[in-house]
Design a protein around this nucleic acid. Structure first.
Length: 262
DNA sequence: AAACCACACAACCGCTCATCA
DNA sequence: CTGATGAGCGGTTGTGTGGTT
């Protein structure tokens, strides 16, 4: 369908934001909330497209943003989540408090891709480079298991229901994945739909373990699989299982056996 | 010191999806 | 039911910056 442009390009500024524009935007949102992005620029006295305002706020001006370098733990978490979700940057960002999808996307393209290539791992498939036989490619899981398990930021996720809500958990009986995943460009290949095979050899250890400080060796702790937290059903993305039939309350992570397919 | 190059990141663009009249 | 509109997402581009020659 034909669309009207989101804004009158002739009367909008483009390019880098000035300090004054930032201040205007922040002041307006503090006073009125985020509201309607389309009408916000005019109301705030900004010669900017509403989309541009939203992007600026979301990626740069939001007070809860965490600036600075990514930690090794965040690195590892991004790699795992990318292996599970593909280029679903907004979903990945939802598991990294204070990080934005744009930031993660940029970081992936500039740092992590290279890091994986240096490890001999294809950043798209998360399989060893040059591997023709997918089933004989346990390298992904091995490489990821070798890394530290979970970033503390992710452990904080359960205390952030809003963040989890943003990931949109799917109802147990629904096969709907939330819609947008179908618009994926296919870069990651981790479909969240039903019926289709999804990364059959994917074996990412995405368990959300007990809080740091607990001793995993002392006694077995219930480990809730991250795919459950993401709203995926048992078996949709890994080999996790509910502890009892029909239960979603406790879904434990169960690694796939080598060669096992979901 | 200047030119060149590579990198990092902010911002833009085009698209899809959800919502509403 | 249909079309218009707004919001959000992912891919891509542009630009500033630091390092190297």
């Amino acid at each position: 369908m034909g669309r009207s442009p989101c804004c009158e390009k002739a009367h909008t500024n483009k390019g880098a934001w000035t300090k004054e524009e930032d201040e205007r935007l922040v002041a307006y949102i503090r006073a009125h909330g985020e509201g309607c992005w389309r009408s916000l620029p005019k109301a705030a006295g900004l010669l900017r497209c509403g989309k541009s305002c939203r992007l600026r706020w979301m990626n740069y001006l939001r007070p809860d943003l965490k600036r600075g370098n990514f930690t090794d733990g965040e690195d590892d978490l991004i790699i795992r989540l990318h292996g599970l979700l593909g280029n679903k940057w907004s979903l990945i960002a939802g598991q990294l408090p204070g990080r934005t999808d744009n930031e993660i996307k940029n970081y992936w393209n500039t740092h992590i891709k290279r890091k994986l290539l240096a490890r001999g791992i294809d950043p798209h498939t998360h399989r060893p480079l040059g591997s023709a036989d997918a089933a004989a490619a346990p390298g992904v899981a091995a490489a990821h298991r070798a890394a530290p398990l979970m970033h503390p930021a992710a452990a904080a996720v359960p205390s952030s229901p809003a963040r989890l809500a943003a990931v949109k958990p799917a109802p147990a009986e629904s096969s709907d994945d939330g819609g947008r995943s179908s618009s994926s460009s296919g870069g990651g290949g981790a479909s969240t739909g039903t019926g289709e095979p999804r990364c059959p050899d994917l074996n990412l250890d995405l368990s959300v373990g007990p809080p740091a400080g607990d001793t995993p060796t002392s006694q077995p702790q219930p480990v809730v699989c991250l795919c459950y937290r993401l709203g995926l059903r048992a078996g949709e993305a890994c080999g996790c299982q509910a502890d009892k039939p029909g239960s979603q309350a406790y879904r434990y992570f169960r690694p796939l056996e080598q060669g096992q397919y979901i």
